[in-house]
Design a protein around this nucleic acid. Structure first.
Length: 531
DNA sequence: GCCGTTTTCGGCCCGACTGTTTTCAGTCG
């Protein structure tokens, strides 16, 4: 598993380099293969072993050979050769907002500029003045972008995106003349990390909506047209707002939710049927088909509506076509929350309040996680009196440490993998103790070491039938949806935790992470229907 | 480089926006 990301990165770098060298279609081909391998739920080395690489979308004869070379030797000759043709800093030029491969290539070949620092020096020395295609406005924009280039291209945790999205959406609902408002893009698909926010609204008065949008606190306008405006928030988020007609809302929502590969697949289905889908409507020749809702769009393809979380071109189209879409976990399926840390200072009144909140949230049981044995004893005495919801007292224990049992065994254990190296697979034994599950897998998903660690833990959990905890993203527990899907497909069980109570946001995000992994309530220990 | 029950060759998503243009190229999503 660990090599998937490395292979994807190598292919992505080939794509970027080819782009800079002016290749026409190869970059897109390498990009597609890279994306496809990145979101693969299976170990690429296993796929290669089974001789199924060509079945991966976007992998043909040439890329198969390069993947095999990488798996065999850890590098790709072709990539090494390309790197030699392009100075390393030139790749960074492409990451400056507003600078693409064509522009970066001209800086490099026409001006000899090889990295962002040299570009800044060239601008300061006035060397761009007089180059065709570079007026004063464009030069100033590039200079400004260089000053804040650090934010560009960065993806941040889903939970962080949720806070920004909620703030903007509620401001628009309150202050702007909008009807429907929806956040599309990777946020709506609940990707673990989000690069920018894409908001769609319907409104009869787009200009007024934009006026409100750009007056949000800390907002600076990046661009504004009649149907679209882009701002940058003070925290560095890029937020796009599009105003569409109500009759196009479904088409636009489907289009801007993506993923890119899912859209390629739906468009190709449309083509097979003599239809054409764009962001405004489904068209049959000159005839406009209903496009106000996403269901309209999928109906035109004879498909049921597909939940956004699984729109990744990873089998959802085929499943929809054959009527085998899974009934994904719903927030209302969760009947227990078992990861409620309680402070030592918490008194009976506060506990009663917590239980009341859980009851109102529809939970039948909750699990309290105190920090000490003394606290556990005190909470245990209180808990036996509660029946609605039922209250259990558990402990969070560092994996490998003994379970504390000074008075009574805790009812459950959250094993924390934080900072603990995964056991070797041959030592596939669950720790002794009460019912437990493994959380805090840790690891940074954006670095190479993170996924490898997580994969090792997931392999171990699969072998030992240890359940895994799912929360609202890798910012907390490190478990990404690709690994999670692999785990549940191998019959792994999960506990979905929002790590708190009464915040719709965290529950929605935790459930969203599970849904991305095609998790149904049958795999979820704290859901309805679990024996 | 990939892909195909209309193609094994000839296509490759496409529209919005910007800045520079006198009709368009580049970037972005």
């Amino acid at each position: 598993m660990s090599e998937n990301l490395e292979v994807a990165r190598a292919l992505r770098e080939i794509a970027d380099l080819l782009d800079l060298l002016g290749e026409r279609f190869k970059p897109a081909a390498y990009q597609r293969a890279s994306r496809s391998i990145e979101s693969l739920t299976e170990d690429i080395a296993e796929v290669a072993k089974r001789d199924q690489l060509r079945a991966v979308p976007g992998v043909g004869e040439a890329i198969e050979e390069k993947v095999r070379e990488f798996l065999r030797t850890g590098s790709i000759d072709y990539l090494v050769k390309l790197r030699a043709e392009v100075p390393p800093g030139v790749l960074e030029l492409v990451h400056i907002p507003g600078v693409g491969p064509k522009t970066a290539r001209r800086f490099w070949t026409d001006l000899g500029v090889q990295n962002p620092a040299e570009l800044r020096a060239a601008i300061d020395a006035g060397r761009l003045v007089g180059m065709t295609g570079f007026g004063p406005v464009k030069i100033a924009k590039i200079h400004a972008a260089l000053d804040q280039a650090t934010m560009a291209g960065l993806r941040r945790p889903l939970l962080e995106a949720a806070r920004v999205a909620e703030r903007i959406v509620s401001a628009l609902r309150e202050r702007a003349p909008v009807d429907q408002v929806e956040v599309a893009g990777s946020f709506r698909r609940r990707r673990e990390t989000v690069g920018d926010l894409d908001i769609l609204v319907t409104s009869a008065e787009p200009e007024k909506v934009f006026d409100v949008f750009e007056s949000l606190e800390g907002a600076t306008v990046a661009l504004r047209g009649p149907t679209k405006e882009t701002i940058r928030t003070s925290e560095g988020w890029q937020v796009d707002l599009r105003v569409v007609a109500a009759e196009s809302f479904g088409a636009a929502l489907q289009y801007f939710t993506g993923s890119k590969d899912h859209n390629v697949a739906t468009r190709s289905l449309a083509r097979d049927r003599g239809l054409k889908i764009n962001e405004y409507a489904v068209m049959r020749g000159e005839e406009r088909l209903p496009s106000a809702t996403e269901a309209d769009i999928y109906r035109s393809l004879d498909l049921p509506w597909i939940p956004p979380e699984i729109r990744e071109a990873q089998g959802e189209i085929e499943a929809a076509r054959s009527g085998r879409l899974p009934a994904l976990l719903e927030p209302s399926d969760l009947l227990g929350e078992f990861h409620l840390h309680v402070a030592p200072s918490v008194d009976d009144a506060a506990l009663a309040q917590l239980a009341g909140a859980a009851h109102r949230a529809g939970l039948r049981s909750i699990g309290l996680v105190p920090e000490s044995d003394a606290e556990a004893a005190r909470l245990g005495a209180w808990a036996v009196k509660r029946t609605s919801p039922r209250v259990l007292v558990g402990r969070e224990v560092k994996f490998g440490d003994p379970v504390p049992n000074s008075l009574a065994l805790p009812a459950f254990v959250v094993w924390s993998a934080a900072g603990v190296e995964p056991p070797r697979p041959e030592r596939a034994a669950r720790p002794h103790g009460p019912t437990g599950w493994l959380g805090h897998l840790g690891g940074d998903p954006e670095t190479a070491a993170g996924p490898r660690r997580i994969a090792a833990w997931v392999d171990w959990a699969t072998a030992t039938k240890m359940p895994l905890e799912v929360t609202s993203g890798p910012g907390y527990d490190g478990l990404d949806s690709v690994s999670l899907r692999r785990f549940t497909e191998a019959n792994g069980r999960v506990v979905v935790s929002e790590l708190g109570l009464g915040t719709e946001r965290t529950r929605a995000l935790a459930v969203g992470t599970a849904r991305r992994a095609w998790v149904t309530k049958a795999s979820v220990l704290n859901a309805a229907g679990w024996p």
